[in-house]
Amino acid sequence: MEEQKGATEAESLLEDLGFDKLPIKVSQFIDAVSDGSFPITMEFHAFSSDQFLGKAIGNSEGAGIIINSNIPDSRRLNFTAAHEAGHVCMHVMTGTSQNFSCGNKELGDYFRDPLERQANGFAAGLLMPKRLVKKLTDGDVNWQNIKHISDKCDTSLEAVFRRLSWLEKAPVAMVIHQNKQFKRFVPTSHFDFYIQQTNLTSEQLEACTNVSQESYPSDFDTVDPIDWVTPERKGLRLTELYVSSIMLNDGFIYTLLSYDDDCLEEIED
């Protein structure tokens, strides 16, 4: 798995360099990796278009990172910087490639490009190293734990979800809506059911927790799976589904889907 290769590389470097406290500052990491034989610089410039996120360029003598300071979300900007650091450490320094430009087009090609997946894994391992993150929660993939890690590591909710769900090997997925309209979903390798790409119903909207007014929830509602997924696959039927939705700014609604063995039954031939 390319993401895990990247995460392992980042965690190994952090341990070698003596980073043992959160949050991990990307600029401090770059300073620690950089030396006279291979200097690395990181600069922030305001680009008018958010289509461009970041860039990593270099050769055998050194490397430079450029980040679009106009990325509106500071935590997304932080992850972008860590992603470009991954390109430098894993690809430029090793001679694999000398030039990476990351934007919306590259995100669209993400699953077809193993180097982008390695850099994303590196960013996750750099900002959320397993040995430090595992101490922060009880291991459950719920909004309360995700929010806690997000605050401690200065990373987005989605990035934390991806990292925590992998660390816990949990059958979970995230569905993202905006103004009730389906936008996309974030699957994980342990979630075995197809997600319905449908808009939110009034009942689903009412079940959301508005986290600008209430605390991030740790609990889930038990619902009929058919409202969220195709409930039959690989000889199994999902009889119940655990759901937890939060309402964020700009009309965004993030929903966690989860199940356990008690929710499954075998389909008889």
Rank of each mutant, 00 (worst) to 15 (best):
D250G: 07
K5M: 11
T201I: 10
L241S: 04
F193T: 00
D260L: 08
T255Y: 04
N70E: 10
G139T: 10
Q204N: 12
Q28I: 00
G95M: 02
K183C: 12
S49T: 11
D269I: 15
G62N: 02
L157V: 08
A207D: 12
V243Y: 15
Q28W: 02
V33A: 01
P225Y: 13
L256N: 01
T8D: 11
E168K: 15
M1L: 13
P23Y: 03
N120G: 14
S37E: 09
V160Q: 01
N199M: 01
T222A: 06
V133W: 00
T8Y: 02
V160I: 08
G36W: 09
P225T: 08
S12A: 09
E61K: 15
W166N: 05
M247P: 04
Y242H: 13
V160S: 02
M1P: 11
K5G: 13
Y254D: 03
H45T: 11
G139P: 12
S37L: 00
Q196P: 13
E84Q: 10
E214W: 11
L132P: 05
I30K: 09
L132M: 15
Y110K: 13
E61H: 10
L205N: 15
G36Y: 07
E84W: 08
Y242F: 11
S165A: 12
R184Q: 10
D113F: 04
D192A: 12
K234P: 04
M42A: 11
N104T: 11
H148Y: 15
K21G: 01
D224G: 00
L17C: 08
G58R: 01
P225I: 08
K25E: 09
L264Y: 06
V223I: 12
M42I: 08
S150T: 14
L205G: 15
I267G: 00
L241Q: 04
H148S: 14
H91L: 11
L14C: 09
N68T: 02
Q144W: 03
N199S: 13
K21S: 11
S150H: 10
Q181M: 12
H45R: 13
K130M: 15
F29P: 03
T239H: 06
G86I: 07
Q213R: 14
T255F: 00
H83Y: 07
F38R: 07
I65R: 03
P129F: 00
E206H: 10
I267S: 01
D20Y: 02
V243H: 14
A124Y: 05
E266F: 07
L256W: 01
L264H: 04
Y216C: 09
D109G: 10
P72L: 02
N199I: 05
F79G: 06
S215Q: 15
N59Q: 06
M1I: 14
F185T: 05
F191H: 06
V133N: 07
S165I: 01
A207I: 08
N120E: 14
N99W: 14
L77R: 12
F161G: 06
A173C: 09
C153H: 06
F191V: 03
G103S: 00
S48R: 10
E61F: 09
L248I: 06
I149E: 02
F38C: 03
D16E: 14
I65D: 03
C102D: 14
I226F: 04
T230K: 04
